[in-house]
Design a protein around this nucleic acid. Structure first.
Lengths: 249, 249
DNA sequence: CAATGCCTCTCACTGAGTGATAGTTGCTCT
DNA sequence: AGAGCAACTATCACTCAGTGAGAGGCATTG
């Protein structure tokens, strides 16, 4: 569960616990936390006590959940993160000109996290989406994968199990690898029904001034209102927007 | 900076660091973190390295900021927190029937955190407000103060410096204390231009089934559209809503 | 080019964190 | 009712992770 080489053990263990809480949809019991994280129950208990004491977790009727401090941290994050701040006006403009939803994701471990979004006029908002974790192997995750270091990509693909896309297509380690090198050349990714059936999207990495991949920018549409060819025409716009954001960070 | 009696030192220190990051409006340097938290630079540095490694912090051009993991945690929080889940439909109804913005705050240390909000039709949204930290001594914070344990309230009022309300009135330790006992009797608080000039609000604690104060519910309005007397007529509604939420948690 | 400030790294010491064990509470199933 | 089980809490001796003084590197500034 904990990949690190033993630097800051206590802290990383606590973060493992927080991650276990994050993954749970409902309150989880201490014993589950212990099982999930591989920590001794006494250790899990001590950590939990501290987490609760600091508001990072809370105890409810039948188990533990995350605490409200997470919200405060998140609030501060969106106010101070350079990428989010730089992206916001650009996303707004991109969403206006395309009529679509425009988003920014950043990589976190082997996931991506939605950090900024400007919704299309017809919002179809399910739930507050900011902060949602999504996988790297579909949709806008691919450009992020494409810019990992060789070692990281190696590690990721090592035991990549493959995935069945929403289109029905099966994505293997090989097909993914091939697609990633295409993305590296073209600078963008056009996805059709990858994570969600009936959606088409264009995504491009945002490169910081120093050339690192700081995140991905993407736009999404339903394929019943926007054809793939129509979306394809938006590619230059997306690339320009991504570059514009990158210059500012 | 760290009030605790030495249980989980490393962890609490890390949280102090996170709190320092949260308070900063822009990237802060390691030495500032060290100063802010009172930690030895080497210690601060080791903790920071771990935080960055886990995505709880990130290094930008000239200093550290919070990391995107905070968002993921927050996202999970709003999906799993019993209070937020129970409150949402009630807030919606209350907002609809009053035409005002309805919110839930929970206490965290000696602050309150906005955990749920349904906006009035004319949103006047400045920035994404969820997660914002606000003080306990004004507005909807008062009902939370009113339900602290005696020791906690003692501690809070011990070196309470007083505050100048937006109305111009000066709130002292004594006037606050008196107001709190009124709130304890009546069960609600009606505030006029306390935190923000020209706003009126009604707030009531949400009591869980076990009788603990789980949070506060409030509604706010501008005093140029809603008179104090008009708002006063909404008090029973607010009390009912708070109770309704409380029953479900 | 000294001086200052900010950061990184090393390393010996030590007390905070650990985890096996035992005790407690509260539930379910005879 | 009480035997049996599971989840949780508390204790405590051991030891290794965390600590912090110190030294060194790298910019920036006067």
């Amino acid at each position: 569960m904990n990949a690190s080489g033993n630097k800051g053990r206590t802290l990383e263990r606590a973060f493992d616990v927080l991650r276990a809480l994050e993954n749970a949809r409902s309150p989880i019991r201490l014993s589950e936390v212990s099982r999930e994280t591989g920590l001794h129950i006494a250790t899990a208990q001590r950590i939990m006590a501290t987490l609760v004491g600091s508001g990072y977790a809370q105890t409810s009727e039948n188990g533990y959940t995350l605490g409200p401090v997470a919200l405060a941290q998140a609030h501060a994050f969106v106010l101070q993160d350079p990428l989010v701040k730089a992206a916001r006006p650009v996303l707004t403009e991109l969403s206006d000109s395309t009529g679509l939803t425009a988003s920014i994701f950043v990589r976190s471990g082997f996931d991506r996290i939605l950090t900024a979004r400007v919704e299309a006029p017809e919002p179809m908002r399910y739930q507050f989406p900011i902060g949602r974790r999504l996988p790297l192997d579909v949709g806008a995750g691919k450009p992020l994968l494409a810019h990992l270091t060789d070692e990281e990509l190696q590690e990721y693909l090592e035991d990549y199990p493959g995935v069945r896309l929403a289109s029905g297509e099966h994505q293997t380690s090989e097909s993914l690898r091939a697609e990633l090198s295409e993305i590296r050349e073209s600078g963008y990714h056009l996805g059709v029904s990858e994570r969600v059936l009936g959606t088409v999207s264009v995504a491009a990495v945002v490169r910081s001034a120093r050339g690192e991949a700081a995140g991905v920018l993407n736009i999404v549409a339903h394929d019943d209102t926007v054809s793939v060819d129509t979306l394809r025409r938006r590619i230059p716009e997306v690339l320009r927007a991504a570059e514009l954001i990158g210059q500012q960070i």
